[in-house]
């Protein structure tokens, strides 16, 4: 009979440490294959089907595990949410709601990108959208390299929080570009 406790650390269900659950060191740079592998291992151990014939309490527990595993996996997989989570573990709030003082040149850049998106949307120009996506990808990968330095090497948490805030703008703009793309295609 399969037993969740063989694979899932019993006491950890309500712990918030996703790194520990996935057996990864608390770092921004992670072994993505190890994350995938452990995710599948955990998922299959916690899968509700496996516990279908077990007592109700165990079935409920396996559902809770499945939820927590999915949540942790999604959070660790994306560099933006992973960085934000690492800062949270260190007690640093990125101030997504109330920190509005972004560097002026960054905001000017955002305005320019937003204008370019409007223009491309109004002109129905998919190539302009592609060009903007490429620019944004470069900005995102630049920010990720910066996070590697700030989080893993220099442990400069306030700088990392500022980079995370910038990445949030970039991610949001990326979603809007994708939505504009989809609209053009339909």
């Amino acid at each position: 009979m399969s037993d969740t406790s063989q694979v899932l650390p019993e006491a950890d269900l309500f712990s918030r440490d996703h790194f520990a659950l996935f057996g990864l060191p608390r770092r921004f740079v992670i072994d993505e294959r190890a994350l995938e592998g452990r995710y599948h291992e955990l998922q299959s151990a916690a899968h509700p089907d496996r516990h279908a014939h077990r007592p109700e309490q165990e079935r409920r527990l396996s559902m809770q595990w499945a939820t927590r595993i999915n949540e942790g996996y999604r959070l660790l997989r994306s560099p933006l949410t992973r960085a934000r989570y690492l800062l949270e573990l260190e007690g640093v709030d990125v101030g997504a709601e109330n920190n509005t003082a972004m560097p002026a040149d960054f905001l000017m850049q955002q305005m320019a990108w937003r204008e370019a998106l409007d223009d491309a949307r109004n002109a129905g120009d998919p190539e302009a959208l592609d060009a903007l996506s490429a620019t944004l990808r470069a900005a995102r990968s630049g920010a990720e390299s910066q996070l590697v330095r700030e989080l893993d090497e220099e442990h400069n948490l306030s700088a990392a929080a500022a980079t995370v805030r910038r990445m949030m703008f970039i991610a949001r703009l990326g979603e809007d570009i994708a939505a504009a793309h989809e609209k053009l295609e339909n």
């Binding site: 997504a96 709601e97 003082a101 972004m102 905001l107 955002q110 305005m111 995370v164 703008f169």
Partner: peptide, 13 residues
């Protein structure tokens, strides 16, 4: 004045 809200990506001048 230029400000921005990371939560929703809003930019305001």
């Amino acid at each position: 004045g230029m400000v921005g809200a990371p939560a929703c990506g809003d930019v305001m001048k």
